[in-house]
Amino acid sequence: MVSVPEQTRATEPAGDPAAPRHELSSGPGRVLVFVYGVFAVAATGRSLVQLGTDAGRAPFAYSLSLVAAIIYLVATTCLLLGGRRAWRVAVVSCVVELVGVLTIGVLSYVDTALFPDKTVWSHFGQGYGFLPLVLPFLGLAWLRSTRPGAQRAA
């Protein structure tokens, strides 16, 4: 599973000696890792079931589920790894996630024919309590407070 702590040991070579090793996955980051992990598993499972059982029904929507799954997996992994490079990749994946959920959210209302079946991001993540819409903001806020060189608040 995603939340195996052994993975947190694989930090980058000490580029910044002042940075704590588990900076991204401790404190509020710990909660974030868990939520991202749940979504990574949920989205991966969903896309695999959808693509595996009935890929022809809504190829666009199902491919998007897979994209969402990969982005959640990348974000979870980066938060677990920590370090500068992971931080940067995490920012990119959160931004892609935000753009994705907003674009797909709008598209799913505008062009319903494109979405015969739902994805994680359609209707702004309605099927998931709108968490997919909130999550990238939380992620970016957390990444902002842990940006390299920043003073840790907590």
Binding site: S3, S26, G29, R30, V31, V33, F34
Partner: peptide, 11 residues
């Protein structure tokens, strides 16, 4: 398992 690593409010 994940929370036990950090016995704080976050945990």
């Amino acid at each position: 398992f994940w929370s036990l690593a950090e016995r704080t409010r976050a945990g």
